[in-house]
Amino acid sequence: MSRIVVVGSINMDIVNRVDSFPLPGETILGKGVAYLPGGKGANQAVAAARAGGQVEMVGAVGEDSFASALLDSLEGYGVGIAGVAKKPGSSGLAFITVADSGENQIILAAGSNGEVRPEDAGDSLLAGAAAVVLQNEIPWETNLAVMKACRRLGGIRLVYNPAPVRPIPEEAYGLVDLLVVNETEAEGLAGIPVSSPEEAEAAAKVLIGRGAGSAVVTLGSKGAVYAEADGASLFVPARKVKAVDTTAAGDTFIGALVVAGAEGKRAAEAMAFAAAASAVTVTRSGAQASIPSRDEIHRKLAEDDRKPE
C-alpha cells in the first residue's frame, strides 16, 4: 500500500441548503443546516484513504469544540493523525451554501489552518512518502518549505492543488511534479479563457512551460485534461450522473488520482479512476461522507463499461 502524506487544511463545514443562491442584499430562508468535517486537505486525505492509500494528515486543529470531531472523522476514515497539531484558538471553518442545482458557494475562516508552520511539516513526517499533496488553505511559506523538502529528500511525487487560487511564485513551479487545477484556477494562473478541453490543454501547457512536471485541468461535468512536459496529453470525459452536491468532487478526484499514480497506473487509467470517484461523490450530500470507497469506484468503472454506447 502506497504511503501518501497530505499537508493542508482541516475545517468544520457549516452547510446551508437553499433553493437558489441569494442575490446581493437579499435575505432568503435556508432549508437546513449541517455541521460536517471538511477542508481541502482533510477531504483529499480521506479520498486517498478511501481509494486505497495509506494516508497521513499533517495540519492543525484548534482548541474548540470542533477539534475532536474533526480528528475523529479523519481517524474513522483510516487517515493517520499523528501529524495534526493543536493550536490556540478556533479550528478552521467553512461556511458553505448548497443550491438545489448541486452547485455551491464557500467562505473560509482559516482559524488553526493559518497557524500551520514549516516546522509542523518536518522531514520526519515527509520522508519515505510516495506522494505529498498540498493546497492553498495553509500559509504559503509552509507549502514552499514542504515543496523544497520533498525535492531535497528525493523520491517523493509533489502534487499541488493551488486552491483557492493565487499567483504561484516562479521558483515554485519547478518543484511541482503534478499541478491540479479546475477551470477557474487554470484561467487565473495561465491568464487565458478555459471552458473547453482544447482551452484546458492550452492552459495546462502554459503551466508546464513555467516548470511544472505535468498538469491536470478539471472541467466539472465536461471532464478533465492531463498534459505532460513532453507534449503528451489526454482528455477523460466526466461520468454521467445526476449531481446532488459538488462540494468534495474536486478533492475526491485529486485523492483518487494520487493513489492511482502512486500505484503505478498509467495516466489514462489513473484519470479514469479519479473521474469515477468524483462521479460517485456528486451523487451524495456532504464532503467526507460523500467520498466513495475503492470498491465503489471500481463498481462505477465496471457499471459504465457495461453501458451501451
Rank of each mutant, 00 (worst) to 15 (best):
210 R>I: 06
24 P>N: 12
213 G>D: 03
119 E>T: 12
39 G>V: 03
87 K>W: 06
6 V>Q: 04
41 G>P: 06
76 G>D: 04
44 Q>M: 08
112 S>H: 09
110 A>T: 12
7 V>L: 08
199 E>C: 08
229 A>Y: 01
248 A>Y: 02
193 P>V: 09
25 G>H: 09
285 S>W: 11
243 A>H: 01
132 V>K: 01
9 S>D: 04
165 V>C: 15
215 A>C: 15
144 L>A: 15
41 G>L: 06
292 P>E: 07
106 I>Q: 04
115 E>M: 15
125 L>G: 10
11 N>V: 06
210 R>W: 13
280 V>Y: 04
23 L>E: 14
240 K>S: 13
219 L>N: 03
145 A>Y: 05
42 A>W: 02
237 P>V: 08
97 T>G: 14
20 S>P: 12
209 G>A: 12
46 V>C: 06
197 P>L: 09
166 R>W: 09
2 S>G: 11
121 A>Q: 02
138 I>Q: 08
87 K>Y: 09
238 A>Y: 00
106 I>A: 09
111 G>W: 00
288 Q>L: 09
69 A>P: 12
143 N>Q: 13
296 E>D: 12
217 V>Q: 01
127 A>I: 11
180 V>F: 05
261 G>S: 08
65 S>P: 08
114 G>N: 10
96 I>H: 03
17 R>G: 08
234 L>K: 03
127 A>R: 15
58 V>A: 12
272 A>C: 08
130 A>C: 11
107 I>S: 13
168 I>M: 11
231 G>V: 00
41 G>Y: 00
72 D>L: 13
32 G>T: 05
67 A>E: 05
209 G>D: 07
153 L>K: 10
184 T>D: 07
51 A>R: 05
14 I>L: 14
217 V>K: 02
40 K>F: 02
22 P>D: 06
279 A>T: 00
118 P>I: 05
233 S>T: 05
68 S>K: 15
79 V>A: 04
19 D>L: 12
176 V>M: 11
222 K>S: 11
261 G>N: 07
224 A>Y: 01
220 G>R: 01
148 K>Q: 14
145 A>C: 09
174 G>F: 10
130 A>L: 13
298 H>C: 13
164 P>D: 08
211 G>R: 11
210 R>V: 06
235 F>R: 04
267 A>P: 14
